[in-house]
Amino acid sequence: NDEAKKEAEKLWKNNKSEDEIKERLERAGISPDEAEQWLQELR
């Protein structure tokens, strides 16, 4: 999970869309709710 979150953070810094980041997190096995929460922390 931490690995996926690091990846999400990297994508965020590269200005990827939130949808793309969420999709990537969900593919890594993170629930949509958790993915949404993680994005809010990044904002």
Rank of each mutant, 00 (worst) to 15 (best):
R43L: 06
A28L: 15
D2C: 15
L42P: 01
R24W: 15
P32C: 09
K5M: 05
K13Y: 11
E26Y: 15
E7M: 15
K6W: 08
A35R: 03
E7K: 04
E18F: 12
Q40D: 07
Q37H: 06
E41M: 13
N14D: 13
K16Q: 06
K16G: 11
D19F: 11
I30R: 01
K22Q: 03
K22I: 09
E20K: 03
Q40R: 13
E36L: 10
D19Y: 09
D19E: 13
L42R: 08
I30P: 00
A35S: 04
E20P: 02
N15Q: 06
D33S: 10
A4V: 09
S17M: 04
A28R: 10
E18V: 12
W12P: 00
L25K: 00
W12R: 00
K13I: 08
G29I: 01
A8G: 04
E7R: 04
L11V: 02
G29L: 02
L39H: 00
N15T: 03
A8R: 03
E7Y: 14
E18W: 14
E3A: 12
E36F: 07
D19W: 11
L39S: 02
K13S: 07
E26K: 13
R24K: 11
N15A: 07
Q37E: 09
A8E: 01
I21G: 00
L42W: 13
D33Q: 12
K10C: 15
E9N: 05
P32Y: 06
S17L: 05
E34Y: 04
K6L: 09
D2F: 13
N1P: 13
K16D: 04
R43M: 09
G29C: 03
N14M: 14
K13R: 12
Q37F: 06
A35F: 06
K10I: 12
K22D: 00
L11P: 01
S31M: 06
S17W: 04
R43H: 04
N1W: 15
D33C: 13
P32D: 06
D33Y: 11
D33F: 11
L11I: 04
W12F: 11
K6Q: 08
N1V: 14
E26P: 00
N14F: 08
S31A: 08
E3T: 10
Q40K: 11
N15M: 06
L39R: 02
E26V: 14
R43D: 01
Q40T: 09
S31W: 03
E9G: 05
K13Q: 10
Q37C: 12
K13D: 03
K10D: 09
R43Q: 05
E23K: 10
A35E: 00
E41C: 15
N15H: 10
E36R: 06
R43N: 03
D19H: 09
K10F: 13
N15Y: 08
A28K: 05
E36M: 09
R27H: 09
D33R: 10
E9I: 13
E3I: 11
R27V: 07
I21Y: 03
E34W: 04
E9M: 14
R27W: 11
P32G: 07
K6E: 06
L39Q: 01
N1C: 15
D33M: 11
D33T: 08
N1L: 14
R43E: 03
E3L: 11
W38Y: 07
K13A: 10
A8S: 03
E23Y: 08
K13W: 12
K16T: 12
W38R: 01
L42F: 14
K5G: 01
L42K: 05
E9F: 14
A35L: 09
Q37V: 08
E34T: 12
R24M: 15
N1H: 14
E20Y: 13
K6A: 10
D19L: 11
N14Q: 14
K16P: 04
S31C: 15
A8N: 03
K5W: 15
D33W: 13
L42T: 03
A35I: 15
L42D: 00
W12D: 00
Q40G: 05
E7A: 07
P32M: 07
P32I: 06
R27L: 13
E20Q: 06
D19I: 10
E36W: 10
I21H: 01
R27S: 11
P32V: 08
L11Q: 03
N14E: 14
E7L: 15
L11D: 05
L11E: 03
L42E: 01
D2Y: 13
N14L: 13
S17C: 13
A4I: 12
I30V: 11
W12Y: 11
L39M: 08
Q37G: 04
A4E: 04
L39F: 06
K6T: 07
E20N: 03
P32Q: 08
N1Q: 13
A35N: 01
E36N: 08
K10H: 10
W38S: 01
A35C: 12
W38L: 07
E23R: 12
S31Q: 07
L39Y: 04
W38M: 07
E41N: 11
E9V: 11
R24G: 08
L39T: 02
N15V: 02
Q37I: 09
K16R: 11
E23H: 07
A28F: 15
K6S: 07
I21Q: 02
G29V: 00
K13M: 10
A4R: 07
K10N: 10
K16N: 07
N1T: 13
N14S: 12
A28G: 06
E41K: 13
S31F: 03
N1R: 15
K6Y: 07
R43W: 08
Q37N: 07
A4Q: 06
K13F: 10
D2E: 12
K22L: 12
K6P: 03
R27T: 07
K6R: 12
E18K: 05
E23Q: 12
N1E: 10
W38Q: 00
N15G: 15
K16W: 13
L11H: 04
E34L: 15
I21W: 06
W38F: 12
L11F: 05
E3V: 09
K22S: 01
I30A: 04
D19G: 07
E18S: 07
W12A: 01
E34R: 09
K10S: 08
A28Y: 15
K5A: 02
R24L: 15
I21A: 02
E20F: 12
K6F: 06
